[in-house]
Computed example of a mutant assay.
Amino acid sequence: MWPYFRGWGAWWLAALLGLVLASGSLRAAEETTLEIVTKDGVHVFSVEMARTDEERQKGLMFRKELPEGKGMLFDFKPDQDVSMWMRNTYIPLDMLFINGDGTIRRIAENTVPLSEKTIASGGPVRGVLEVIGGTTKKLGIRAGDKVAHPLFSSP
């Protein structure tokens, strides 16, 4: 009976350890809605939030697709100069660098997949929105347009 019990205890310990280790990677990213106001209208996106260092570091790495209307919003509280890259990112992205008041400071269009070239914000920003490459051109989104989301304060 003892060997059976010892094996059973080891199984439970292994299962518990597996749950603890997996819990961080199985946690679903917070998803929220974001709007971009352009001269042609309002464009709505469903975005995953990247708030922690770990979430910001991973970003959209290893993804093979990103549907239109989806994206990831990086929170860089407090406002700061930011540099991004495309390491381990398999899809081209448009990166929108957004000031604390919600104004788009700069857009890097169709970034090159798997590149380690840094893409700078061009000044302090509160957030960076990543969407599928070509989105900003297709929707007429430009620097100076406004982003409505709780992350950004209204003037």
Rank of each mutant, 00 (worst) to 15 (best):
I107K: 06
G133I: 00
G18R: 00
G133C: 04
F74K: 03
I98A: 00
E109Q: 13
G144M: 04
T118E: 13
Y90R: 14
E30Y: 02
R142V: 05
S115A: 12
L114G: 04
K70N: 14
D40N: 15
E55P: 01
G7T: 10
E30G: 00
M61A: 12
L16T: 12
A50E: 05
L34V: 02
M95R: 01
R142P: 00
R126K: 11
G134Y: 00
G144V: 00
G71H: 09
D81Y: 13
S23P: 01
V125H: 01
E31I: 10
V37C: 07
A143P: 07
L21Q: 08
A22G: 13
G144I: 02
V20H: 03
L151A: 03
F74L: 05
V82D: 07
S154W: 08
L73M: 06
R142W: 02
T38K: 07
E35H: 11
E68D: 15
E30F: 00
R27G: 09
I104C: 05
M84V: 06
R6H: 05
T135Q: 07
A50M: 09
T111A: 10
K138C: 06
P78I: 08
Y4S: 14
R63T: 06
G59Q: 09
A15V: 15
Q57L: 15
N110Y: 05
D94W: 02
K77S: 13
M84K: 08
D94H: 02
P92V: 10
P3R: 12
W2C: 00
M1I: 10
S23W: 11
L114P: 04
I91K: 01
V128W: 00
D94Y: 01
R126H: 07
L73I: 06
G122K: 04
W85T: 07
L26S: 12
N88D: 15
M95W: 03
A50W: 07
V47G: 04
E55D: 06
